[in-house]
Design a protein around this nucleic acid. Structure first.
Length: 417
RNA sequence: GGAGGGGUAGCCAAGCGGUCAACGGCAGCAGACUGUAAAUCUGCCGACUUCGGUCUUCGAAGGUUCGAAUCCUUCCCCCUCCA
């Protein structure tokens, strides 16, 4: 159990959110004395966030739930520069219009997790383009550049790794850490925000901000980083067959999101419950103690709780219900993707491979053929053994649909119209 | 500006005149085993196909050749070192 006095730090430590902290006891004392404001910066390189950012979102959520004020800092300005951390290649540069569109999409994701408003603990969102776009080169260098040591900047992982691996690093990217450090000072001034949180890969950037705050602004600033979340088998989490696990439903349906969590590895269930749901720690302890196939109950609880946070409890229970019908009963559920096909086509006999392509279960006709050859294709739960198989009206069930499956987990419905 | 090294499928990476739709690894998909887990094993993994083949691909465009990812020319891009 955490020894922290403040409710935030106690909960964060107990649930496994804390990796490093610049002055843990100092921060604990400040938090115990009264509410604070903290921020986390997010890139806007895409129009949604994915599971890779979820830990940071949950950290802000916990911050708010324990009575403090969270600020979401959109990197509208820093996105124009590109964080070199963890990359060997320069990121492509985005236009202002792209960045604006991406920010709007990301805002919709945050609305699910945080309560925005004007109250003392309401979340706020701001954009560092607000101050970064207006920076003047010479004044900035004279006022802040003199506090940065190139010697130290060269030792930062983001820079050092690139240099060691003889990968290119442009001067533009080299400036990223200065700008991020400056953000912290700017937020301290504007919002009296003295805490920055982030992933463990941001430690260097955060500590530079803490130092700059002291040197250039006389602020006492704090930094906290969260651990890098990998699965028990070592993979970076957040990838599925279809790609990244997005948090907006336009990119990934609530059903697929539920499935992502349902398929968590055994060894990760407890950790993920603590990080990605609001369930009480005592309840989580009970769930993760389940052994053997009973652990599946814990995975379902994880999936439903995590989906409820992201897409609402209605969508979560609908996804759970669909999964129950599809997997436990081998039937169909409303949440499966539906493709419509005209009755005439079926009357004439539509090639099965064509429908596998149209439903998205296969990416090409050839892939559909291979799926059938490999024995992974099923129509109404019966394995397809003939590549030339045609779908006819005889395949339509009483519900007016045909269920197509690629493997055990991917299903789609064809509806006759 | 000078010298050198590169650009091959989602990624890494072989190939260096035919047997190359292109070795190998990773990622991915499917099957077996299971618990919608992990690990393991097996198959698949450019597109189309009447399964005989056909078409497009190795930075771009030309050329040599019966035949080019492989040779030549020009162009574009990237890296390293020197100035």
């Amino acid at each position: 159990m955490s020894t922290a006095r403040s409710s935030f730090l106690a909960a964060a430590e107990d649930r496994g959110f804390v990796h490093q902290c610049t002055d843990r006891d100092g921060l604990d004392a400040r938090l115990a004395a009264g509410p604070l404001t903290a921020y986390i910066g997010f890139d806007c390189t895409a129009d949604s966030l994915h599971v890779g950012s979820l830990l940071q979102i949950m950290l802000l959520r916990l911050w708010q739930r324990t009575g403090n004020k969270p600020i979401v800092l959109m990197g509208g300005g820093t996105t124009k520069v590109g964080d070199p951390s963890g990359r060997d290649e320069t990121r492509r540069l985005l236009s202002d219009a792209d960045i604006d569109a991406n920010m709007a999409g990301i805002r919709r994701v945050f609305d699910r997790f945080l309560t925005f408003g004007d109250g003392p603990t309401d979340a706020a969102m701001t954009n560092n383009a607000l101050w970064l776009d207006r920076l003047e080169y010479i004044p900035f260098l004279r006022e802040y550049g003199r506090h940065f040591s190139v010697n130290r900047m060269l030792t930062q992982d983001s820079v050092r790794l690139r240099l060691e691996r003889e990968q290119p690093l442009t001067f533009l990217e080299f400036n990223y850490m200065m700008l991020q450090a400056y953000d912290f000072v700017e937020l301290a001034r504007r919002e009296r925000c003295f805490v920055q949180m982030g992933g463990s890969d941001q430690w260097g950037n955060i500590t530079m901000g803490v130092d700059l705050g002291r040197r250039a602004g006389g602020f006492e600033l704090f930094g906290i980083t969260s651990p890098l979340v990998t699965t028990s088998s070592g993979a970076k989490m957040g990838k599925t067959a279809q790609g990244a696990v997005w948090l907006n439903q336009e990119r990934l349906s609530p059903y697929d999101y539920w499935q992502f969590w349902r398929n968590t590895e055994d060894g990760d269930v407890g950790r993920f419950l603590r990080l990605f749901t609001d369930l009480p720690v005592s309840e989580i302890a009970r769930l993760e103690a389940l052994g053997g196939s009973e652990i599946n109950a814990a995975k379902e609880a994880l999936a439903t709780a995590a989906t409820a946070l992201c897409h609402g409890s209605d969508a979560a229970s609908a996804a759970a219900e669909t999964a129950r019908r599809v997997f436990a009963e081998g039937g169909i559920g409303e949440n499966l993707p539906v493709t419509e096909t005209p009755r005439d086509a079926l009357a004439a006999g539509a090639p099965a491979i064509q429908l596998f392509l149209e439903t998205g279960l296969a990416a090409s006709l050839g892939e559909a053929r291979r799926l059938i050859r490999g024995g992974g294709a099923r129509i109404n739960d019966a394995v397809v053994d003939d590549e030339a198989r045609r779908l006819t009206l005889d395949d339509v069930s009483a519900d007016g649909v045909i269920k197509l499956s690629a493997g055990r987990k991917r299903h789609a419905l064809v509806k006759v119209v």
